[in-house]
Every structure is written in C-alpha cells, then in structure tokens.
C-alpha cells in the first residue's frame, strides 16, 4: 500500500515547503493528497461494485423469450424445457459478467453472497434423525439435530440447524457423510440417517390447537443407511430446498 501523508498532521506544524497547498487542503477539510484520494476513490468504487454485483447476480435468473413455444415429441407430447445453460434461455449477461470479473476478489474477501435472508419465502426446517448400531445390531446412539435440549448455547444449536438445513443444497451425499461421522464418533458399525422436513402450521391449524410437533408435520425426505465403509442404499432422490434463514 502506498505511503500516505499522516492524516492528522496539523498544517501549521508541517514542513514549510508547500504551505499554500496545505492551507488550501486544510481549508477544504480534505486532508489527503489528491493522488491518494483518486487511488482510494477508484478502489472504493471497484470494491462497492463487487459487493453489489454478487447479490445482484445471485438474484437474477435466466428467462425464456416471450415467444418461446415448447417443442413436442413425435407423439405430440410437450418436451421438457431445455436446461438453463441452453442457448434458448436469455442470460442476464451484465450481472453474470461483472460477477465473473470480480469472482476471485469476492471469494478472497468472503463477499460472494446473495443476502437472501428468509427469501424467497420462509420454509420449514430440516432435521437429521440418526441411529448408530454396533456389529451385533445393538443400538449405540440415537438422536436428532438440531436439538434444543442437547445443543447449547443457542448459536451452537443454530450451527446444527444450518448443518441439517444445508443438506438440501448439498444433496444426499451430505447425509451419507453425516452417517459416516456418527458411526465414527460412536465407534459403531452401521448407521441410519433420516433427512426430515418439519412442515409449518398455518394460523388456522394453530388456532385449532394442532401441536407444532404433531407427527403429521414431519415428512421424511430421505433415508440413508451406511456402514463404517460401504453405502448400502438410499431411498430418495436429492430434493433441493431453501435454507431457512441461510439464504445464498
């Protein structure tokens, strides 16, 4: 970084070489040298542009042209919409290009975020329910996370909540890794992890006194069985869902 003039230096005590310039700068209440101000201004503009384009790009989606008509197959059934990378889709080129330009800077400074808190809509929570058994089939451990009774303080509980929630973005493999971790931690042989969506109750359901933890509010999205080395099976496909409170 370039050396700059000490910012709090009193012009009266400065070397007498350029008293007029210093006096002028002091009068304008802007003490930095113009060259330094230009440099900082450019850096500030670049930085704020980077901070702006990250959420801008993440909030934009490609769109089909208004005149787009779905193609039909030989039997007259509509074909699925082409993938979003296809040239049919109109890409938001400006935010994509700008974010591409600032990509590494955004990564380096951990600025690559969408700030989509509780958006586009608040969603139900994800839970991970697990069991671990030894080689004889005896249960070594069982539980679920997040679990307010076991994870304290609240931030620790929240970390577990995010761990469960982000399963939705990372897919089934993350559930498999949780199972492996739990087997390792409890020195077990096999484990099962259930990825559960805890659905939200409507105001009417609450007024009707339906409990928030009623069994009907829990939906098993995936069940993953794992041994200490080899995966056995999985029953559901990956279901991407929003991270409650996590956003992008």
């Amino acid at each position: 970084m370039a050396k700059k003039r000490p910012e709090n230096q009193d012009p009266v005590d400065s070397p007498p070489a350029k008293p007029k310039k210093l006096a002028k700068r002091a009068a304008s209440a802007v003490p930095w040298h113009p060259a330094w101000r230009w440099l900082v201004s450019i850096l500030v503009v670049l930085h704020l542009t980077a901070v702006f384009v990250a959420p801008w790009d993440l909030s934009t989606d490609p769109a089909l042209p208004p005149s787009y008509m779905a193609q039909n197959d030989s039997q007259g059934n509509p074909l699925p919409v082409p993938p979003r990378e296809s040239s049919v889709w109109q890409q938001p080129v400006v935010p994509r290009s700008l974010r591409g330009f600032f990509h590494h800077y955004l990564n380096l400074a951990y600025l690559n975020h969408g700030y989509q808190f509780f958006a586009p809509d608040p969603a139900g929570s994800n839970l991970i329910r697990y069991q671990v058994w030894d080689s004889g089939g005896a249960e070594l451990a069982s539980g679920e996370f997040p679990n307010i009774d076991q994870q304290w303080p609240r931030l620790f509980y929240h970390r577990h909540m995010m761990l469960a929630a982000q399963t939705g973005e990372m897919g089934e493999q993350s559930g498999r890794l949780y199972a492996k971790h739990l087997i390792r931690r409890h020195e077990g042989k096999t484990g099962r992890v259930e990825w559960i969506l805890h659905k939200l109750l409507s105001p009417q359901q609450v007024l009707d006194e339906t409990p928030f933890d009623a069994p009907s509010t829990y939906l098993v999205l995936a069940e993953i069985n794992e041994t200490s080395a080899v995966a056995l099976n999985s029953s559901s496909e990956e279901l991407p869902i929003a991270i409650p409170g996590g956003g992008q």
């Binding site: 139900g124 929570s125 839970l127 939200l200 105001p203 609450v206 409650p244």
Partner: peptide
C-alpha cells in the same frame, strides 16, 4: 411471511 417465520418450531 412473518407468520411462517415465527411458526417455525425450530426457530421459535
């Protein structure tokens, strides 16, 4: 939306 946020059992 505020309802669905406060109705989340895990967040409550």
């Amino acid at each position: 939306a505020v309802w669905w946020a406060v109705a989340n059992y895990e967040y409550q």
